[in-house]
Structures are given as C-alpha cells and as structure tokens.
Design a protein around this nucleic acid. Sequence first.
DNA 1: CATACACTTCACTAATTTGTGAAACGACAG
DNA 2: CTGTCGTTTCACAAATTAGTGAAGTGTATG
Lengths: 184, 184
Amino acid sequence: MTNSTPPRRKRPDGSGPAHDDGGAGVAVDSTRDEEGVRHFVERFALTLSNLGFPRMSARVLGTLMVAVEPGLTAGQIGQRLGVSAAAVSGAVRYLVQVGMVAREPVPGSRSDRYRLPDDPWYLAGAAKSGVYKRVADLVQEGVVVVGDETSPSGARLAEMRDFMLFIQDSLVDILDRWERTRTP
Amino acid sequence: MTNSTPPRRKRPDGSGPAHDDGGAGVAVDSTRDEEGVRHFVERFALTLSNLGFPRMSARVLGTLMVAVEPGLTAGQIGQRLGVSAAAVSGAVRYLVQVGMVAREPVPGSRSDRYRLPDDPWYLAGAAKSGVYKRVADLVQEGVVVVGDETSPSGARLAEMRDFMLFIQDSLVDILDRWERTRTP
DNA sequence: CATACACTTCACTAATTTGTGAAACGACAG
DNA sequence: CTGTCGTTTCACAAATTAGTGAAGTGTATG
C-alpha cells in the first residue's frame, strides 16, 4: 500500500491576502470539486507508476494535466501536491529529460514555468521513444546468442523480434493517422 | 545503477570446460554460448523490469524464452537462474495469474512443467490486457471530476482519453493482422 | 553591489520491494 | 499407509527507491 493520505502541508509565509480558498490559492474554479481532482491525480499517478513510471513524476504529470492554467511553476506544483520543493525538482528533471514536459522561463520572475508540450507527452511515450524497437533489438541479441534461428528457442525469439518490429511500424502509422484526424 | 552483478551463487568462472548442466542433465546444445545466453537473460529481464515488470518474473520469462525445451519445471528454472525455489514459486505464480505462462502437469512426476502459451505472452501483454483501455477509463474519470470538457484541463484530459481509445482499437486491429500473417 | 526569492543539490531517514532459509504441504512410489 | 521429494508459504534480512530538511546556487530587483 502506498501513502493514502498525502502529507499535511503547513502554510508558510503570512504575506499576501489572508483568505483561504480551499488550499491551492490559485485559479480555483469554484464549480470544480478540488477534492475529487486531487484524488484523481493520485489514482492517475498510481496507474502510471504501475507501468514503471517514477511515482513523483507521475504525480507532477497528473497535476499539470488537471491544471486550469497552461503551465505551473515548480512552487505551484509542490504546493498543490503538498510535497517538498526538492521532490518536485527531481520529478521535473526526469520529465524534462524524457521530453514529457517543457520548461519555459517566466519573463519577470526567477521561476521557470513547466507545461505539457504541444505534442502531448503520451505521443512521445507511445511510439516515438521506440520502446518496441528497442525490445526488438534486444531480442535480436538473444537470437544471436542462441545461435540458431531454427532451434526452438531461436524460433521463439525470432518470432518475438518480428512481432516487436511489426508493432513498432504499425504504431508509427497509427500515430500518423491520429495526427491527421486531429489536425485536418 | 541497477544490479550490475548477476545473482552470484556457485559457478565461479565463466569460461573453460564448465560442463555444468548440473543434475538436471538437460539439453545443453554444445554449440551454444551458455555464458552469453545467461547474460542475455539478465539484460532481457532488466529491460522488462524497467517497464514495470516484477524482476524475478522477468527472469523466469527470459529463461523460458531461451530454453531449448518446450517447458521447464520450477526446479530447473531455479537451478538455471541460481535462485531459491521460493523465488521461482512467487515469480511463476504471478506469470500464471496474468496468463503469460501456462502450467501443465508432468505425467510420471510430482512436478509441474511451465511453458509459454501457444498464444505468445506478449500478445496478452500488448493489447488483450487492455492497458490502453484501462487508462482511457481512468482518464475519463478525470474528465468527470474537472467537470467541463471545454475547460483547458477538461480538453487536455478528453484528448488523452480519445487517444488511448484510438490506440486500443488500432492495436486490436493490428493484432488481428499479425495473427493473419502468421497463420495463413 | 547586496538582498531575497526560487530552484537545486546533498546527506540522510522512511518505506517499499526483493529474495532467502526453514517449515508445511501434497502427490506419487512402494 | 507411509516415506520422499518437489513445491509452496511464511517471517525475516538485504537492497532499492522515495521523499525530506537544510545548505548551496544563481538571478532579478532595490
């Protein structure tokens, strides 16, 4: 089991207006069920982390997905998630590295803003990154070491390799089609 | 930075007359580079575990993939990997549960034999399991909680949902096509 | 040029995951 | 029925991963 109750955050700094709009202090659409949103972000993150995604990065991704704003600063993210700035820093570093989040400087401020790229992150995740291709290459090494593509193990591995290549190619086509349906 | 040393147990060196097919006395193709095969299994497992797969299960899967035999007993698997029987037991339980490995009794023995299903395991992993569909459903919940499909966050989530559904459907088609090319 | 704020890095603690040995279990051989 | 051997379960130890507070770094502002 994972932490079901996010760490309680204390409210630092007394500066600024003294009223509380429910926690985030920013752009809260009053019609929106912030409690539900927060819960969704947790489930979203949990699912992604089951797929091998770093947990905190998944949380950050979720936070950006549900944000009304087009982008958030690291500070805002940490505040909304109730985690330390350090945690956000690490999570964001990873996300930027794999191209799932873009960082852009904010004009009159020292903080950068993070936002989801125009090409949504899952496009990168799905095929551009070429996971299937990489697996195919790996399995090909297997074919080589067992030496004989006609042996039982050789045949098994070769079939897997072919399958992965097939999927990779098909996926590229699919992405193409998706983009066409989206941008006529 | 993951484990750089494969499970060390017995088996000191890797070259030489190492004719250890230990008591199991099994189908070692003398032309085959067993050292290389073992190394491949480790890399294979590492890759899968990066994709969120339990590590030992990935090792077992790899072992079955490279085996000359059509199936192996738990004992054989443990021996080849140099891990405890308990570890194999747990790994195999998971694999059977998700349908990536089939268990079949061995006639004149108390041990079962595990083998890869006729429908290769990655077919199950790729689409049948419906990961994309599940993500789509999850994201749909997000659309609901943010309340408005036209808000920035609502639109983002809705697009992701559509994408996941699109991929799921396409993948089903692709699998179809794959199976047709394989069985004319 | 000095200050303050926002982010980053670092060393450490907490929590989760992974794997082990030993005991319990169950099916087949006698 | 009883003994044996392979498998499974269990409680615990080791290793990995996550997240924190505090100190460090850099930049826009006074």
